[in-house]
């Protein structure tokens, strides 16, 4: 057996990494196309407010984080309706709400422990319970994405047409928002905010450069996410880097390579076209 798999924590890191890499881009495709790329950051700031509220009112802080994250996701959905063409306004409004609430609520916490430590997540420090949680979550998300594939595709591009086609957009949107919020808040505590919010966007952005259809984008995004996570984890193990940052930077480098490749390719096509034209 390879040395890297000899440790229990690395095995868990790889299993969790693979699952997160499969489910996050599935949600990420819809999120990016709805122009909500920053939703990961927004929801994690609201999770922090949830931890503060939980501690202030004697609730379980983790439960508080999940509830606030769900409320924030629905808040974004609602604000987005008021500014249909500027989705990023909704993200910014809800993010500021979260930061503001966290600041004020933290003042009510008597035994103000270190808030961040409740949200601390690292892919190399995952407990058994969290592993099972991620397995259960992944099953739900994968099933939802497979069964609602056509519906999600419709509401992503044109809610109006979706309504005319007889798709219950309200309930589909409800399910999707709920899934997004739970996925982000659970994974943020498990693998860290950085990994989850970048896996939501980076693989999708890379896939969009080369895919020719919606379905291809989803499939390529999952493949890219798997490449980022698995190579990022291995590199961080052998090179003594922080795992979260390594995964993200592998993603960025891949995206840059794909962009350069596409640029060179399209120039070559144009050149060839000009040459053919001159010959004629």
């Amino acid at each position: 057996m390879l040395e890297i798999f000899q440790y229990d924590f690395m095995q868990k890191a790889f299993i969790t990494g693979i699952l997160i890499a499969i489910i996050t881009p599935c949600i990420g495709v819809v999120v990016v196309l709805k122009r909500l790329s920053m939703i990961g950051d927004s929801l994690s700031h609201n999770s922090l407010a949830g931890v503060a509220a939980g501690l202030a009112f004697g609730l379980n802080p983790i439960l508080g984080a999940v509830l606030f994250s769900i409320a924030a996701a629905f808040g974004i959905d609602r604000v987005r309706k008021s500014f249909p063409r500027y989705s990023e306004i909704a993200i910014a409004v809800i993010m500021s709400t979260g930061i503001g609430l966290a600041g004020i609520l933290s003042g009510f916490v008597k035994n103000s422990a270190n808030f961040n430590s409740f949200l601390f997540g690292s892919i190399v420090a995952i407990s058994d319970f969290e592993l099972y949680l991620v397995i259960g979550l992944s099953a739900i998300v994968i099933l939802a994405v497979i069964f609602l594939f056509k519906e999600l595709f419709y509401i992503t591009f044109d809610e109006e047409a979706a309504r005319l086609a007889g798709i219950p957009i309200k309930s589909i949107n409800f399910v999707f928002t709920l899934l997004t919020a739970v996925t982000i808040s659970v994974s943020a505590r498990t693998v860290g905010t950085l990994v989850i919010s970048s896996l939501m966007v980076l693989p999708v952005a890379t896939a969009m450069q080369i895919a020719k259809s919606y379905k291809q984008t989803v499939v390529f995004a999952v493949i890219f996410a798997l490449i980022f996570t698995l190579s990022g984890l291995s590199i961080s193990y052998y090179a003594d880097f922080k795992p979260g940052g390594t995964i993200v930077l592998v993603g960025i480098l891949t995206l840059i390579c794909v962009l350069i490749y596409k640029n060179v390719l399209s120039k070559a096509i144009v050149k060839r076209a000009i040459r053919c034209h001159n010959h004629n």
């Binding site: 924590f9 961040n116 601390f120 690292s122 420090a125 961080s236 193990y237 003594d240 922080k242």
Partner: peptide, 10 residues
Amino acid sequence: ADSEPSPARM
């Protein structure tokens, strides 16, 4: 809370 150890260090 916000810094994670590298796997090699672990």
